[in-house]
Structures are given as C-alpha cells and as structure tokens.
C-alpha cells in the first residue's frame, strides 16, 4: 500500500507535470530548431513570439467569452487559437520582410542574425506588454480537472491523491497531434521536402529551382503556429505572464541543443529530457521517500535544488551537452 502511495505521489508531483511541461518545451524547441535548420540562426525572439501568439489568442478568447461562446468542458482558447496563429504569422512574416530579409540579402553571418533576433525579441517583448500589460492574465475556462485529488482518494482509498488537470491532458493531446502533423508534413509533402532540402544543402536547393523566399515564408508560418500553440498551452496550464515566456527561452534552447539543433526529433526528446530533469531535481522527495522507507523517513525535504534555481538545471544540461556532445543526442548541427 505504501509503495502504491509512493507511486501515486510520484505520478502526481513529478510525472504528470513533467509530461505536460515537456510537451510545451518540445513544441517550443521544434520552432527554434526549424528556424535554425532553415534560416540558420538561433532565434532569441522565439519566447516572445510565443508570448505574442498567446496574447493574440487571449484577446480573441476574451472577446468570444464576452459573446457567451464556449466549448463546454474544453477551454474557449482552442476556438481562438486559429486567430492567434494567423495574427502571429502576420507578425513574423512582417518582421521577416522588414528585418531579417535585409540581413539575408547581405548574407550576414549567423551571429549577426542572432543579435538581430535579440533586438526583435525586445521589440516583441515591449509590444506584448504594451498591449496586454505585465500582469498575470487568466483565460482558462471549461473543466479544471479531469480527476481531482479528493475524488481519486475516495475512489481508490489511498492516502495520496492524484489530480489530473484537464489542461495537462489537453497539452499532451494537442502536442501529439501537432507533432504527427509536422512530421507528416516534413517527410511526405513536397513543401516539407523542399524545406528539408533547403536545410540540407541551400546551394543545391536553389539550383533545383526551389524558391528561397517561399521556403522561408512557409517556415515562418509553421513556426508561428508552433509558437502560438506552445504559448497558449503553457498559458492554459500555468498562467499567462509576458515575463515567463522570456524566461522559457533558456529551457527551450537547452531542449533544442540537447536533441541536436536542426533535428525535429531531437527537439522533442530534448524537451522531455529538460522538463523531467527540472522537475525531478527541484521536487521535494521527502513524501515519496517516507512511503518507500517508512522507518527511515528523512527529516529534510530531500530536495536537490530549490525551485528558485530551476533554470540552473537547463544551464547545467546545456554545458554538459556542449562539452561532451556538441551535436546533441540526435546529431544535429554543431553549435
């Protein structure tokens, strides 16, 4: 019984949050990795692209909510998502036209584009705060839980409860659908193959008559969709605050680099590796340890790192990967 309790506590506090967070990071890292593979620079503005997408979706959600539209148990934000994606796509395409294209034509070095993307990041950052403010925004509605801790306890008679938030399940389901659609697109469609060809060998792709501007535009649209979906899922699961998206940049990059920059499969694996490392290292294992070894329950929290330091986990993973396997687990491009 105690072992079961330990298992439930583990699932409740480590596994479920880890899977949800991992899915969000994976979607974010996919966007970063696509930009890196095709436009060949690390897009520091990705976190704030997510924030913008989430913001656009939230504004649309509020409007729908004010009209009394709802999806029943599902969050209304899902209805607003296409609008958010469209707005974000327009924003990034506009940014590309105004900013990145200039540097592309100059054939600027990737490091210059990285710095340029930091400039874009601050602009987007300011834009989002200017429109929606710096505070926490709530926009989740519909059912809060699929199963609450109390229901679970009553159902099973265990001392530990397992609460599953509907947003966590939604996150995982949406992430799976998006990833399947993306891989189908990249591997099976002509447009996706052009993108892969462009990423593989740009000179040859041009010589094969592939239009670079079209590939770049399609990449930005897909990235806008990924960023908006990731941003909205994160906002639904936690809450929306512009600054948290800026902070998400680090774990997202850690995820993309761990998996191998430019490799979509790696981005997904990296997302889960970073998420689970973060959750397991900052979780206080006292309770689980107490169930497993009742006679020897520790006095301390058995927490390796305070949650305040959770970003240190991403840094540590980044350093280890860059030292020992700079191409990442799935052999992306060396950084």
């Amino acid at each position: 019984m105690d072992l079961l309790n330990a298992l439930v506590a583990f699932l409740n506090f480590v596994f479920v949050p880890g899977v949800a967070y991992g899915s969000q990071l994976a979607l974010g890292a996919l966007g970063v990795t696509l930009i890196y593979g095709i436009l060949r620079f690390s897009n520091f503005a990705h976190g704030d692209t997510m924030a913008f997408g989430a913001m656009a979706t939230i504004l649309m959600t509020w409007w729908l909510q004010s009209l009394g539209v709802s999806l029943g148990p599902l969050p209304t934000a899902l209805l607003a998502l296409p609008v958010g994606i469209a707005a974000t796509a327009l924003l990034v395409l506009g940014t590309d036209r105004l900013v990145y294209r200039f540097y592309r034509e100059q054939k600027a070095a990737p490091v210059i584009l990285v710095i340029v993307s930091m400039g874009v990041m601050f602009m987007m950052n300011g834009l989002v705060r200017f429109i929606i403010g710096v505070d926490d925004q709530r926009f989740a509605d519909g059912a809060r839980f699929i199963i609450t801790a109390r229901e679970f306890k009553e159902m099973t008679g265990l001392r530990e409860g397992l609460a599953i938030k509907s947003t966590a399940v939604l996150t995982v389901v949406v992430a799976i659908i998006v990833v399947i659609a993306l891989f189908w697109f990249l591997n099976k469609t002509r447009t996706g193959k052009s993108m892969r060809a462009f990423s593989d060998n740009e000179d040859l792709a041009l010589l094969s008559g592939i239009s670079p501007e079209r590939v770049v535009a399609i990449t930005w649209i897909i990235v806008a969709a990924l960023a908006t979906i990731a941003g909205v899922l994160y906002g639904l699961d936690k809450s929306f605050k512009p600054f948290t998206y800026f902070q998400l940049l680090l774990p997202i990059f850690a995820a993309a680099i761990v998996g191998g920059l430019g490799n979509p499969l790696g981005a997904i694996a990296g997302g889960f590796i970073v998420a689970f490392s973060e959750v397991t290292i900052t979780y206080a294992w006292k309770k689980v340890a107490g169930y497993v070894l009742p006679s020897w329950e520790p006095d301390g929290l058995v927490q390796l790192l305070s949650t305040d330091y959770k970003f240190a986990v991403s840094f540590a993973i980044l350093i280890v990967v860059l030292l020992f396997r700079p191409t990442g687990l799935f052999r992306g491009k060396a950084v």
């Binding site: 892969r196 060809a197 010589l207 592939i210």
Partner: peptide, 28 residues
C-alpha cells in the same frame, strides 16, 4: 558534388522539377 544527404537518390532527383502542385500550403 552536392546532394541532399538525408534523402535517397531517387528523392534527390524528384526534388528537381520546380513548380509542382505540392509546393503551396493550400495544395498540400
């Protein structure tokens, strides 16, 4: 020689003719 290293030889050749219908997001 340049090639798309992650694709098969056949796919390499199939990449070439541009202006295929599959190139727009709509047709995809």
């Amino acid at each position: 020689a340049h090639e798309f290293s992650s694709m098969t030889c056949r796919e390499n050749l199939m990449m070439v003719p541009a202006g295929q219908s599959g190139e727009t997001l709509w047709n995809t």
